[in-house]
Nucleic acid binder design. Structure first.
Lengths: 253, 253
DNA sequence: CGGCGGTTTGAACACGCTCAAGGTGGGTGG
DNA sequence: CCACCCACCTTGAGCGTGTTCAAACCGCCG
């Protein structure tokens, strides 16, 4: 089941299933474009380049586990999930990440976390201490990091509302809306969505079971709000109606 | 019901129910001790002192509402809750804050948030933009802020596990353990807890109803894990047993 | 084309919710 | 200072949403 450990922030290229043949400089450049402020000093740039570690992971593989060194990970390509483990084999997906996202897993808490690849991934990893140490002397970078962490916090809080106070229907509808915003591609009057995660991942993200996810998707399909093809392609026909079903803001009592 | 709006980051002292007669310098000093790095430049100190606004709020009062200027709030005294609002009057408590906490409500998301006082509070508030602008040139401060935001994120994620994958019993037990860590005072072989929030607040925090909270507390009391006196005093007799019931980590399948 | 894992669908069950009726603490006013 | 009173809390009974268990289906990869 667990796609097995694969590339745990290794030193160099490790291709397992022929991801696009990108090189470290290319990946690092993606990181630079996405994360670094333009004002960054050359010295800092070089230091980052030196401390960055290139890693790749196959779909299903573990990227970071509880017990690993604390790392800051940049997703250059692919998609990942951050999973928390509770007793009894229960799992909770705490966040999904896509291209351009920066991940910091600071697990001060009673649970253990694992970062997993949903698809084949290309990653750049930095030892968190070094990275933040450098950032400390580069306010522009630190500020960018703060901004991204605040976004993570905001997403996490939105998810709290979902898990605490929403029905299954609202959760699934809201999930599709959020995914559409993050990785959807617009189509005439709608949005095309290729979901990199399984029903189980969705269930573990929304605090439901795969059966419930499936039933709700069926219901949304029969209501004409979405159309599905294959296991992971969803065409959102009516985003406004979906948002309404997600029960975001006060409407009717 | 809602204790009504009271002191929305006002300019000066506003005593409503005789909180301890602290002065702005005293409150600011508390902020300095709790948040500022020792390395902070005098100029930055003075700037902060100039931009800080003193505010007080009575129990139940609203401190920040959706639509207010984005603020960074320091809790010098008292306790607060950050509440998110969903449709149908449903509420989700996203976080509790106590003395020494620094709150940043950046609501990028589909829901609206309100910061409320649980008890009479003494607060120091800064316009977020100015505060972060200053922090940008003071890496020590920015770093402290980042650290606190990371703690918030970590707490939020722990809460996600709770809301997504735990039973009522585990939620209540976990809640008590967390509160014990944050505001408990050790007693022979146990811990004394004075809860500043109502059953409704707990319910809205744990994604349950007040009835369920009450039933679970009764169950824990009858199991001899806790003893209660009055509405808000809890004596935790056996923390280890409580932690076990919170189902933190893998134990038995 | 064949088989396996993931998904869908169905039926029965359970946990926590809803609705309703007492209790009780603690704050207020006499 | 004590009694009153109201909001908050507790307890109970029945219900509903989502779970659990089980079986059929199907998309995807060999």
């Amino acid at each position: 089941m667990t796609g097995k450990f694969c590339a745990c922030i290794a030193q160099s290229m490790q291709y397992h299933r022929a991801p696009a043949t990108t090189t470290f400089p290319e990946l690092f450049e993606l990181f630079v474009q996405a994360v670094l402020p333009q004002s960054l000093a050359d010295a800092a740039y070089l230091q980052l380049q030196a401390m960055g570690r290139y890693a790749s992971a196959v779909a299903g593989g573990v990227i970071l586990e509880d017990g690993d060194q604390h790392q800051v990970v940049f997703v250059a390509q692919g998609a990942t999930k951050l999973v928390a483990h509770a007793s009894g084999g229960r799992e909770q997906v705490v966040a999904f990440h896509f291209e351009g996202d920066l991940i910091s897993v600071s697990s001060r808490g009673a649970h253990s976390y694992t970062l997993c690849a949903l698809q084949d991934c290309e990653l750049v990893a930095f030892p968190a201490e070094d990275f933040l140490g450098l950032a400390r002397s580069e306010p522009g970078l630190l500020n960018e990091v703060l901004d991204r962490v605040l976004t993570s916090l905001s997403r996490s809080r939105e998810k709290l509302i979902t898990l605490g106070r929403k029905t299954a229907q609202e959760r699934v509808a809201g999930f599709l809306v959020t995914m559409a915003e993050r990785i959807g591609t617009p189509r005439e009057g709608g949005c095309l969505l290729h979901l990199p995660m399984s029903r189980r991942d969705m269930a573990d993200s929304l605090g439901l079971t795969i059966e419930t996810i499936s039933r709700q998707l069926t219901e949304l399909r029969e209501a004409g709000l979405i159309a599905t093809s294959g296991r992971s392609d969803v065409h959102i026909c009516d985003i406004a109606a979906l948002e309404a079903r997600a029960g975001q803001l006060a409407a009717a009592a």
